[in-house]
Design a protein around this nucleic acid. Structure first.
Lengths: 110, 110
DNA sequence: AGTCGTACCTTGACATTCTAGGTACATGCG
DNA sequence: CGCATGTACCTAGAATGTCAAGGTACGACT
């Protein structure tokens, strides 16, 4: 199955990143890899979408960054969830559920 | 519960409209009303989103329009699904299912 | 030496939605 | 009658977010 194309990801990327970081701090590249792995590549996170998204979320105080080093000595920027980020995650989670439930009322019919 | 704000609708509006028209021809305003009613106002369809969307879909050959009159004599533009539209509906339906399934793998965890 | 993979970043194009306006006419109410 | 409200269509411009395509740097492997 090819990865989901088109604008469906819109507005969901934040939720995916927040949820991923809720499992513990990770650096950008690893976040993308983790999401792709966890969904068997059904979701592909482009770097051109990811990095701007991380900036946005940092600016809004949902996540914070710290420079570090990977095991093999590469410089990495490790993001972690803030308290505001955790609240945001709860809000977006609820919104997502509400939205898909509503769509299902239209789409999930014979 | 307030209607879903934010960019989640992105890419889903077409699917919702197609699915609504699959139940039979309807005019633009009625499509919006029907979606809002069927979802208990969880989904709000703005006219500024709807009409451009209808044009798009007509241009792509998924729907076609015919002028008519409402019961009370108002002029209405009635849209109906074309064969291509039916195919598009199937495709977008499948894509939606695939996408939400993938998101659930990330979000639907403890 | 060259390729691949990790890891970061940016620019510009693109698509889509929303805000906020506008027109026209019918109905109901005071 | 005058006015508000609801139906029904339309549009321009702003805002948002994603993506394609580029770039840098360095380590590991061949």
């Amino acid at each position: 199955m090819p990865p989901t194309r088109s604008p469906l990801l819109q507005g969901t990327l934040d939720l995916l990143v927040l949820k991923t970081l809720a499992r513990g701090p990770r650096h950008g590249y690893a976040i993308a890899r983790w999401i792709e792995d966890a969904t068997d590549d059904a979701l592909r996170i482009e770097e051109g979408s990811l990095y701007p998204a991380l900036y946005r979320m940092e600016r809004r105080g949902w996540i914070e960054a710290a420079w570090g080093k990977s095991e093999i000595g590469q410089r990495i920027k490790v993001y972690s969830l803030t308290t505001a980020g955790r609240a945001q995650l709860r809000a977006e989670s609820a919104q997502w559920t509400q939205f898909t439930t509503a769509v299902a009322k239209i789409v999930g019919q014979p």
